[in-house]
């Protein structure tokens, strides 16, 4: 079983978000970066579990500069066998999908996993675009994945319940919470990662289809107003006249 897992680098969840260049660029100064949790906790770990069960290999792929190798090493420490870094700044989702599709098209992967979204730009579209470019089936928001031979069984959470579906390999799926339990890499895994291959390739002819005009932060949260339980009419009044939500 040959699995490709797409991993992204995102700001740590505690990062204070700010922008530069007239609000057109994310200010990465002093920002700690991590592997996108949906990619790591669910897509990568499930891929490693399936490899451990069925044999085969897990390759991780990332589009980004050399400073992304920190998260790539983490993926190798968790259990991926090798890694590919496409040496380019990711410009938009299509750029990333096209670069990965160009690499993956002729490598014989049984399936490709991504997280359901990245926690920075929340695009949620790379996996779908990738499937489109490869002309493979796409299953979004999967919460479980089992593979037997050439057939995969996945579950998706849908409104009010779950959907179970089957698909033949090759396919692309995006992983949601529930697909696996996060793993903490141990130090033996970290040292083993030293010698695992990390190949750097050029992005080919990947193109961006969108440009950022500006970013805007949400309005700052205001203080909480406490209403005595004895005076619910005050709450109704505030919701009516101040928040204007009822």
């Amino acid at each position: 079983m040959k699995i490709l897992v797409c991993i992204s680098k995102v700001p740590d969840t505690t990062t204070k978000i700010a922008f530069t260049d007239n609000n057109t660029k994310f200010n990465s100064d002093k920002v700690q970066f991590i592997m996108n949790p949906y990619d790591e906790w669910y897509a990568l770990v499930r891929a490693c579990e399936l490899k451990e069960k069925h044999g085969g290999s897990v390759t991780v792929i990332n589009v980004g500069g050399a400073d992304n190798e920190q998260i790539i090493r983490r993926a190798l420490a968790i259990g991926a066998d090798d890694a590919v870094r496409i040496d380019a700044e990711p410009q938009d989702s299509f750029f990333v999908a096209e670069a990965i599709a160009a690499y993956a098209a002729d490598k014989g992967f049984d399936f490709i996993l991504t997280g359901k979204e990245t926690i920075d730009y929340n695009g949620s579209v790379v996996a779908g675009m990738l499937a489109g470019l490869l002309n493979w089936p796409f299953i979004s928001l999967a919460v479980s994945l089992e593979v037997e031979g050439n057939t995969a069984t996945l579950e998706r959470e849908i409104s009010g319940g779950k959907e179970k579906l089957q698909v033949n390999t090759p396919f692309v799926a995006s992983a949601s919470k529930g697909m696996a339990e996060a793993r903490i890499p141990n130090i033996r895994g970290i040292t083993a990662a030293r010698t695992k291959p990390l190949t750097v390739i050029a992005p080919g002819n990947a193109t961006a289809l969108t440009t950022i005009k500006s970013y805007k932060l949400p309005a700052e949260k205001t203080g909480v107003k406490l209403i005595s339980a004895d005076h619910p009419e005050q709450l109704i009044d505030l919701l009516h006249n101040e928040a204007k939500v009822i």
Binding site: T14, K30, E69, Q70, R73, R74, A77, I184, P185, N186, I187, I190, A193, R194
Partner: peptide, 26 residues
């Protein structure tokens, strides 16, 4: 949250930071 007033993380290798993350997560 780890205090790093002088950006001393820049003196550490990726492997050092990976090890730190591992132990901190545990």
């Amino acid at each position: 949250q780890h205090p790093d007033y002088y950006q001393l993380d820049e003196l550490l290798t990726d492997e050092h930071k990976l090890i730190r993350d591992t132990v901190r997560q545990y």
